[in-house]
Design a protein around this nucleic acid. Structure first.
Length: 573
RNA sequence: ACGCCCGUAGCUCAGUGGAUAGAGCACUGGCCUCCGGAGCCAGGUGCGUAGGUUCGAUUCCUAUCGGGCGUGCCA
């Protein structure tokens, strides 16, 4: 709705510029790339453009004078349209869509005032669209694959994984709402070195629990959870693997433990509201020969050479500081080689866009991976990596150091126990991925009104309460005279509701889920203000009906945005 | 040493090549005969520093300082 208005404004300005050029009033070669935006200040109208400022240099004229010319041409084209529509039986419908007024302001901005007519059509539209309000076909069904979390199955999910989960899942919801076809994927690193390590750690714990005196591997996983896992396995098989060959024992423990770990991860993520479409095993890439095939392909294209018994990829050709090993001298492919094969596999599956959410500690990997994709003949632009900065945990004013090796970290499960899913998800998505998110455990634990998620949910619950208390059911008052909604608080609320579909598109295309929490908070805030200045259940029947429907439209929008965020929508709190 | 990210109010963070840079928390003072006070309204010396590009820079560029991360035949 807003988008349509914006297009109209853009179109009118272009028409006016063209007209001025034709008349010889303005001299420019190409249509300037002017902006049409919703001004920060309400006093600056519904839309504003900087077209005159941009043309100042080329035309060698003062911006305000240019604005004056544009304005004059806007008016004359408006008049033309008006006179043509006058011949129709009723010109007021067309007139309502036209600008109420256009002003020159500041250094040369043109401010457009639309009036309120178009806003009054909004409420019934939102109510009719209901769960679909906000959705669009912007993405035109483009197939997008998004991989996130992909935590090593050797441990539990930590805060960084939780941030990735919240961001990734919300981004998926956003992209779907914006008309993309999205597939969510978790890449299971169930092969390679860390699995070897995992096996050694499991074995050591197993033998220790059976009373054997063995050292724990230096590079092993020291976490308590490994012991728990081994205990569970022992409850099933006892000491049956005490005296078997070490490699068999290790293999058994690895398989059992992986099963248990992955199932834990799945459960924790599901509890966090995240369900994947695909769980992709790295091991399958080894088993199917996909990695070998990828390496061969790179070799044939001349990107691979041998040195000191290892195969190297010429990543320096892609701007890397040094080349990377693909196959170690012991014959085993590296994680990097597997990851290239994995990404090739993604493109082979026909995705037009492939998104990864990685921790910032992997940033060195981005250029290499994009380079590898180009080497394989794919457009690296289609691979989008969202880097998120690491989560800092603070408690009692101190930064808590987290390390997977040492097993010192707060898990996703613990986080949900303490602060709940709603608060955790909202909190993680609230910050831009670029920010070093500081998670204050004490504050989060408090579960008090300090958490912004309650503020938004409270608005929703409050609305539900009003609707319940209403003397008439909404269906009885489907129609209303919305022009009765004249208060500033009402108009502000309507404008915010109108923004929602475009807000989704912008958040989706810029991969910025945090815009959504901002929108949710702003909308809740405008509702609370409205609530305090306008009584909904007033004795004036017509006004009551109009306000009830406005409130219902607000409820729908709040619910839809919370749904996108994966946050619950309580009717009572 | 080099590379990437960040530096905005007391704290945690938004934001933009444009008009008077915002929110939450904290602090102070108001607002319930009335739909939920987990609410509303009012209150602020802030864009790390120095140059440059521009009609206009907090935003873009360069340098510099401070913090985080990375630079493995680990993942």
């Amino acid at each position: 709705m807003v988008a349509a208005k914006k297009e109209q404004v853009t179109f009118e300005i272009e028409k006016a510029l063209q007209q001025a050029k034709t008349k010889g009033q303005l001299d420019f070669r190409e249509m300037p790339n002017f902006a049409v935006e919703i001004p920060r200040e309400k006093a600056h109208g519904d839309f504003a453009t900087n077209a005159a400022l941009l043309l100042s240099k080329e035309t060698k004229m003062p911006p305000r004078q240019i604005a004056q010319i544009i304005l004059a041409n806007l008016e004359s084209s408006n008049n033309n349209s008006d006179s043509s529509s006058d011949s129709s039986s009723n010109s007021s419908a067309a007139g309502a869509d036209r600008f109420e007024k256009v002003e020159i302001a500041g250094p040369g901005f043109l401010n457009f005032y639309l009036g309120t007519g178009w806003l009054y059509k909004l409420v019934p539209q939102i109510i009719a669209e209901d769960k679909n309000f906000g959705k669009s076909s912007f993405g035109q069904g483009e197939k997008v694959q998004i991989e996130f979390v992909s935590a090593n199955p050797t441990g539990l999910l930590h805060m960084g994984n939780a941030r990735g989960a919240a961001l990734g899942d919300t981004l998926c919801n956003l992209l779907k709402a914006a008309g993309y076809e999205v597939s969510k994927e978790f890449y299971i690193n169930d092969a390679g070195n860390q699995i070897e390590n995992f096996g050694k750690s499991l074995e050591a714990r197993y033998l220790q629990l059976l009373g054997e005196n063995v050292d724990f591997p230096e590079e092993g996983y020291h976490g308590e959870d490994i012991i728990e896992t081994v205990k569970k396995i022992m409850a099933e098989v006892g000491d049956a693997y005490l005296k078997v060959e070490a490699s068999l024992r290790r293999e058994f423990l690895i398989q059992k433990a992986l099963q248990e770990k992955i199932s834990n991860i799945k459960n924790d993520l599901a509890r966090f509201g995240v369900e994947y479409d695909v769980w992709f095993s790295e091991q399958t890439l080894h088993d199917s020969g996909a990695i070998t095939k990828t390496i061969q392909e790179l070799q044939e294209k001349g990107y691979i050479y041998e040195k000191e018994g290892a195969l190297w990829l010429k990543t320096t050709q892609f701007g890397d500081e040094k080349d990377e090993v693909m196959v170690r001298s012991n014959g085993l492919p590296t994680y990097f080689a597997a990851d290239i094969a994995y990404h090739q596999n993604k493109f082979e599956r026909g995705f037009q866009k492939v998104i990864n959410i990685w921790g910032a500690d992997h940033h060195g990997h981005v250029a290499r991976m994009k380079g590898a994709m180009r080497a394989l003949g794919y457009d690296p632009e289609k691979l989008q990596v969202i880097l998120m900065q690491l989560v800092r945990l603070s408690q009692e004013g101190e930064i808590v150091r987290m390390s997977k090796r040492s097993g010192q970290y707060i898990t996703l499960a613990e986080l949900m126990d303490e602060v709940g899913r709603d608060a955790a998800r909202f909190f993680f998505v609230m910050r831009s991925p670029d920010s070093h998110l500081e998670f204050d455990l004490d504050l989060a634990k408090e579960e008090s009104a300090e958490n912004p998620v309650y503020y938004v949910q409270y608005a929703h619950a409050r609305i539900c309460s009003i609707l319940k208390a209403s003397p008439e059911k909404l269906t009885e008052s489907g129609a209303a005279d919305f022009t009765l909604l004249k208060e500033d608080a009402e108009i502000d609320l309507l404008r915010k509701l109108a923004d929602f579909p475009e807000e989704i598109i912008e958040a989706a295309v810029s991969y910025e889920p945090h815009r959504l929490t901002r929108y949710a908070h702003d909308l809740a805030s405008l509702f609370h203000s409205f609530y305090n200045s306008c009584r909904v259940l007033t004795d004036e029947e017509e006004l009551r009906k109009a306000r009830l429907l406005l409130v219902e439209a607000t409820r729908i929008t709040l619910r839809n945005v919370l749904l996108l965020l994966g946050v619950s929508t309580p009717e009572r709190m």
